[in-house]
Design a binder for these strands. Structure first.
Lengths: 136, 136
DNA sequence: TTAATTCTTGAGAGTTGCTATCAGTCAAGT
DNA sequence: ACTTGACTGATAGCAACTCTCAAGAATTAA
């Protein structure tokens, strides 16, 4: 069993955010002790993990709640859950591509500045001449 | 020259967001025509591109504004700009790693559901048994 | 030539997802 | 008894959009 603080540290999510997610119904059935303090089980950490995963790909909390609720219903919702996961995976792959592209720009700019510094040049008169192709 | 609508389409950013960014001072010196309508040049697209890049890595608008302003100052700010780009690149790499990790979970869940459907099993009694290792 | 349609504009309201503040409860240590 | 620390819910504040709207110009249709 873990306190909210331990979960926060373990999962690298702030306590505030965990409480916010809990209030939003994203962690079903987290037990409380005699003093009303949340006790996360390993099972509950599973919920935290999937919520964190869906959030990191940009899924909004309402849609996450829907996925959680589908899980609770049982096997009749497997096809829909499967669809959600598949769609989310596609989204993650797209984000990966996008991130790669932006990384290329950053690489380019970094080496541009490197050269600028090495040659003691300046770019005063064209503050964005480190951007070659303008269209993303 | 491009209208805001064209830029939105070209850069895959909403017109609303472009206006919001413009109002925040993220696009310095975008010209207007006789009817006060913004005319983005290719040079301006460069600004849009770098703003989009920094945003996509999670840089907040205030920090982006700072970077833009540093660009406008000229060569004396090259070291600081270099630092910003380097730090941003590191951040992008970390996000890449994080995304990869989440993608693994999604892959796992997808194949789990696939098997579930193939075998016509159900997971009614343990809605999150598709999560093996709970700790992220 | 008038009317309807299509842009664009700025202002401002509304939304999401946190994030921070605060007062209050409880338990353990000194 | 008293302080310290962890946890609680309620509430306020914030960033970054996102949406709605009225106004104004230009293009097109009748």
């Amino acid at each position: 069993m873990y306190t909210i603080k331990e979960v926060a540290k373990l999962m690298n999510v702030s306590e505030h955010t965990l409480r916010f997610w809990a209030k939003s119904g994203l962690f079903p059935g987290v037990k409380r002790d005699a003093n009303n303090i949340r006790q996360f089980s390993d099972h509950d950490l599973g919920w935290v993990k999937i919520v964190k995963c869906l959030r990191s790909v940009g899924t909004d909390n309402k849609s996450i709640k829907r996925y959680i609720d589908l899980c609770l219903v049982g096997d009749s919702t497997i096809p829909e859950r499967f669809g959600i996961i598949k769609a989310t995976r596609i989204k993650a792959l797209q984000q990966m591509e996008e991130l790669k592209k932006q990384l290329e720009l950053l690489d380019y700019k970094e080496s541009y500045y490197e050269e600028l510094i090495r040659n003691n040049k300046n770019d005063k008169y064209n503050p964005v001449n480190d951007i070659k192709e303008a269209v993303s």
